[in-house]
C-alpha cells in the first residue's frame, strides 16, 4: 500500500502545485487545499503504515502490544489539519474580498501592488 499511496501523494503534490499555477483565484485555493492533504498524507505514510491498529491502550493494560499505528504522526497531522482549516477559512474570505475589490477572478489582473514603474 505504501507504494500506491506514494504515487497518490505524488499526484496530490503535482495537482496542488498545478492548481496554484493557474490564473483563477478559486483554483489557487483548491491548490492550497490539495497541498494540505498531500503533506498530511505524506507525514502519515513516511511514518510507516499499520493496518487497523489504532493506538488505544486496552482497558486495564499499561501499554499497547505491537503492531500498532504510530500515534505521533497522528497527533501532528491533527494539529496540521486544524491549522490548515483556519488558514483555509481565512483564504476563502480573503479571496472573496479580493474578488470584490478587483472585480475579477483572474490573478493576472491582481498586479496593481507590485510592478515597477517603467516610466521613471
Amino acid at each position: 500500500m505504501e507504494v500506491a499511496l506514494a504515487i497518490v501523494i505524488g499526484a496530490l503534490y503535482a495537482a496542488g502545485l498545478y492548481m496554484m499555477l493557474r490564473r483563477s483565484m478559486v483554483k489557487l485555493i483548491a491548490g492550497l487545499v490539495l497541498l494540505g492533504y498531500a503533506s498530511n498524507l505524506l507525514i502519515f505514510v513516511v511514518s510507516r503504515l499499520t493496518r487497523a491498529r489504532p493506538p488505544l491502550v486496552p482497558e486495564g493494560a499499561q501499554g499497547i502490544a505491537e503492531p500498532f499505528a504510530d500515534p505521533v504522526p497522528q497527533a501532528l497531522i491533527l494539529t496540521a489539519i486544524v491549522i490548515g482549516f483556519g488558514l483555509q477559512a481565512f483564504a476563502l474570505v480573503l479571496v472573496r474580498r479580493a474578488y470584490q475589490a478587483v472585480n475579477n477572478d483572474d490573478l493576472d489582473q491582481v498586479t496593481a501592488s507590485d510592478r515597477p514603474d517603467l516610466q521613471q
Binding site: M20, L28, S39, A91, L94, A98, V102, V110, S113
Partner: peptide, 18 residues
C-alpha cells in the same frame, strides 16, 4: 492594494508551510 498584496503573501507563505 492590501488585498492584492495579501493574496500573494498568503499563497506563497502557505507554500512555505507545505
Amino acid at each position: 492594494a492590501q488585498l492584492e498584496g495579501s493574496v500573494k503573501y498568503f499563497a506563497l507563505n502557505l507554500l512555505v508551510s507545505a
